[in-house]
């Protein structure tokens, strides 16, 4: 069975397409992901308002993992993706061969919801990931 534990915490769907939920500070305009109550930049409490983040970002750095986190099928790619609003987001990258040659720093990627791993009850745990822009599948 597919389960979606991150929905409405990290992302929401609109017309079937996901977007990440960030928060923006009313005072200093800093944009955070995941959502915060206290602004990490100006350290004001209660100044953060929910915002929808861009669905596309750029690879800041990445690695192909051959030994993975518990439950994750190797090899897989992980990356830090920088969004135009500022947040630098840790995420898996799929939709391309899990190889060094598939990606480069600066490559443009887009947000998808896809399988992350199988849990101990054999559920397919779904969550946000990025894929190269133009890739067909997750």
């Amino acid at each position: 069975m597919k389960i979606f534990p991150q929905e409405n915490t990290y992302y929401r769907l609109r017309n079937g397409k996901p977007y990440l939920i960030g928060s923006k500070c009313r005072y200093c305009d800093y944009v955070a992901f995941p959502r915060k109550v206290v602004c990490p930049a100006c350290v004001t409490k209660g100044s953060m308002e929910e915002v929808e983040l861009s669905q596309r970002g750029k690879i800041d750095t990445f690695s192909v993992l051959h030994i993975g986190a518990p439950g994750f099928a190797v090899p897989y790619i992980v990356a830090y993706v920088v969004l135009p609003e500022g947040p630098r987001i840790f995420s898996m990258v799929s939709g391309c061969e899990p190889s060094e040659k598939s990606l480069e720093i600066g490559a443009e990627v887009e947000l998808i919801v896809d399988k992350l791993r199988d849990d101990e009850q054999d559920n397919e745990v779904m969550g946000y990931k990025f894929r190269p822009v133009g890739a067909e599948s997750g």
């Binding site: 995941p34 800041d60 750095t61 990445f62 690695s63 993992l65 030994i67 993975g68 986190a69 518990p70 994750f72 897989y76 992980v78 990356a79 830090y80 840790f90 995420s91 898996m92 720093i105 992350l116 791993r117 745990v125 969550g127």
Partner: peptide, 26 residues
């Protein structure tokens, strides 16, 4: 060992070698 980082990250596929690998690639 994954418990020595933010659990939120582990659930996204994080592990320590990944952090060092990405930093070194930079």
């Amino acid at each position: 060992l994954a418990a020595d980082s933010e659990i939120r990250l582990r659930d996204l596929g994080f592990q320590f070698t990944a952090y060092y690998a990405m930093k070194l690639r930079g």
